[in-house]
């Protein structure tokens, strides 16, 4: 697999998380794995699979706009020993085919990697039918499912390789679009289930996943300017949680804030709260996510601003919370 460098990181960023996986990573993986199969529900071209389709035509299956059947086909292929990637928009992938995911991937544990594109509010003006604001919640309650959300396009690339190396079902949640903000400028060590500390401070810890990691880093800068020492953690694996790092974070900080472009119910913040609630005495936790509501369709930056998921608003919320609980 290609190593990240300042040069290719720029290229990957332009392609976004989806383009990095389907336009770059899978081409490299297919070279070594003749048992790699990629399934799409009428989104081959949009997903950046055009090159894959021309190079590996018999390893790409277009199932048409029929997600439930696609999950069945994926599972049958996985049963015969193939490593199967399945992709469409996160909303249709996780919700239209949810029971197939639960029974085939959770219950029977077939080796299928789900890649949900344009999760969160990335579909902007397309509106709520195209937003996936519940996918982390419903994917992480499926037994045996690994749930991932890369911080940037480079991490998405490394994630694609990493999930091939494990035998079992995975959901990869892709956020952002083209021109994905860069978190990792060069090669780094990625391991499923091992969160990454990006900056360290002793007052406040910000734990984020997906493209909110970049926003959390910017918020941390703003908070530092206000005199706070801030830790930022990329919790790219929402399930299984890196509990080792959480033990340390809750012990070493005076407040912890989770940040996700997902409903404030059931996602990263909830997962961490579930783990933390049995601690005897720990730093208090603030969960920042999307409100438990359907918003009016609008441009993604506007919706994020409205939800308080931009750097300046995150910094304000975290600062306020810190002052309340310190």
């Amino acid at each position: 697999m290609m190593e990240l460098s300042p040069k290719n990181v720029r290229m990957l960023s332009m392609l976004g998380q989806r383009g990095s996986i389907f336009g770059v990573a899978l081409l490299e993986i297919a070279r070594e794995h003749s048992d790699l199969m990629v399934l799409t529900a009428d989104l081959a071209l949009l997903s950046g699979l055009g090159k894959f389709q021309s190079q590996y035509p018999d390893q790409l299956l277009n199932l048409g706009i029929a997600e439930q059947n696609m999950l069945g086909v994926a599972s049958g292929l996985a049963k015969e020993g193939n490593c199967v990637f399945v992709t469409t928009y996160a909303t249709f992938l996780t919700m239209r085919a949810y029971e197939q995911i639960r029974d085939n991937l959770g219950y029977m544990q077939f080796n299928v990697k789900l890649v949900g594109a344009s999760a969160g509010l990335a579909m902007g003006m397309s509106g709520n039918t195209h937003y996936a604001i519940e996918d982390l919640a419903i994917m992480r309650v499926v037994p045996n499912m690994t749930v991932l959300s890369p911080a940037d396009a480079g991490e998405a690339l490394k994630m694609a390789q990493a999930v091939c190396d494990i035998d079992g079902p995975v959901y990869i949640r892709l956020t952002g679009g083209l021109n994905c903000p860069v978190v990792y400028k060069e090669e780094f060590d990625f391991k499923i289930g091992r969160a990454q500390v990006l900056t360290e401070g002793s007052d406040l810890a910000l734990i984020a996943c997906g493209t909110m990691v970049a926003e959390a880093l910017k918020a941390a800068e703003l908070l530092r300017a206000r005199g706070l020492e801030v830790t930022v953690i990329n919790m790219h694996t929402v399930k299984p949680l890196d509990t080792e790092i959480l033990d340390r974070v809750f012990a070493a900080h005076r407040a912890v804030v989770t940040i996700e472009e997902h409903s404030c119910l059931g996602g990263l913040g909830s997962a961490i709260a579930e783990y933390r609630c049995s601690f005897k005495s720990v730093a208090p936790l603030l969960i920042i996510g999307l409100p438990d509501a359907f918003s009016r369709a609008d441009e993604q930056p506007f919706l994020l601003e409205q939800a308080g998921l931009t750097a300046s608003r995150l910094a304000d919320s975290a600062d306020k919370f810190f002052n309340e609980v310190k």
């Binding site: 059947n69 069945g72 086909v73 049958g76 292929l77 193939n82 029971e99 029974d103």
Partner: peptide, 30 residues
């Protein structure tokens, strides 16, 4: 599902096996 007993699939939720069968059939052909 239990290969030892000859059970290839965990059924019960109706309408799901046909897609799975298509996956098996596509693999056999490939």
């Amino acid at each position: 599902m239990n290969p030892e007993l000859g059970l290839e699939y965990s059924g019960g939720s109706l309408g799901q096996a046909i897609g799975f069968a298509i996956g098996l059939a596509l693999d056999a052909r490939r």
